Computed example of a mutant assay.
Amino acid sequence: MVATRIDGKAFAAKLRDRIAGQVAALKDEHGITPGLAVVLVGEDPASQVYVASKGKQTKAAGMNSYEHRLPDDASQAELLALIGRLNADPAVHGILVQLPLPKHIDEAEVINAIAVKKDVDGFTTANTGRLATGQKAMVPCTPLGCLMLLRDQLGDLSGKDAVVIGRSNIVGKPMAALLLADSATVTVAHSRTKDLSDVVRRADIVVAAVGRPQMVKGDWIKPGATVIDVGINRTDSGLVGDVDYDGVAAVAGAVTPVPGGVGPMTIACLLANTLTACCRANGLPDPQGLGL
């Protein structure tokens, strides 16, 4: 068996096209343009690349992009004041603070200062709580992208046995909540789970988000299972995921590559969340075909 390669890059491109069409319709029919504000503190090279990419794709979708840069030594009070202004700005529908932040800034306090309705990263305590309890929420972009890929590959997830490897607030926990909402049977495993390979081996769906290069081996995988690799690990041989792709591809029914799998979905889902936030702010129905 050779697994189907799940092409996240192609899926994300189609999603962005769909978003651009809905943004154009929103402008034509209501005179409204969604706006995304991205805040970068400091000069982290990787963060600068991410912010530039987000700005480029936001504009390509027909949205307004607002970029705010603060120096590395900016105070927490300055950052919170900026967020306060963005919360109050009606032209801004989504706010994203690029992580990580400098060590002198309380990340949790900053995230929770973002207005819940503009929290397009889905990281505020209010949105994570709503997601966990089955209420309407802004959903973190990476898990949302994973869910889209799973639905596209498998259709109905009801009754599927899913294992999420990783328990982070950004991926693992919200991924489990999304799978539960789709009526999958979910196990959240992690690096300290006993007999981890045996736990994974029974799963129809495996989502690997543990941050360990190529940890998930082919003999961990149930034949025909669908494997979503969230990991992005820089090694001497280049970028690799949390999954041993070649070994897993020989057993699985479908698997995402790294790069080109989950990664491209994250920014596309950020745009989807911004469009959703804009519609909700203006009393319009949620856009169709963009996730939940």
Rank of each mutant, 00 (worst) to 15 (best):
M1G: 13
K9H: 12
L15E: 11
G21F: 06
A25E: 11
K27G: 15
H30T: 08
I32D: 04
T33W: 02
P34V: 13
V39D: 00
V39G: 03
E43D: 15
K59L: 14
A60L: 09
E67S: 14
L70A: 06
D73Y: 00
A74G: 09
I83P: 02
R85A: 08
L86I: 13
A88Y: 00
A91I: 02
A91L: 11
V92D: 01
V97G: 03
L99V: 08
L101H: 04
P102D: 06
D106G: 04
V110P: 05
D119I: 02
V120T: 03
T125M: 06
T125I: 14
A126F: 07
N127Y: 07
T128R: 08
R130V: 14
K136F: 00
A137C: 10
L144K: 13
G145V: 04
L154K: 03
G155S: 06
L157H: 03
L157R: 02
V163G: 04
I165F: 07
R167L: 15
S168K: 10
V171R: 00
M175G: 04
L180M: 12
A181D: 14
A184L: 05
T185N: 07
H190R: 07
S191Q: 06
R192W: 00
T193N: 03
L196T: 11
V200P: 04
R201Q: 12
D204A: 15
A209Q: 02
V210Q: 08
R212G: 01
Q214P: 12
V216R: 11
K222H: 07
A225K: 11
I228D: 06
T235N: 13
D236P: 08
G238S: 10
V240C: 14
G241C: 13
D242G: 12
V243S: 11
Y245H: 13
G247D: 04
G253L: 06
T256Y: 12
P259F: 09
G261H: 04
V262R: 02
P264V: 09
I267Y: 02
A268W: 05
N273G: 05
L275E: 02
L275A: 03
A277H: 07
G283M: 05
L284H: 14
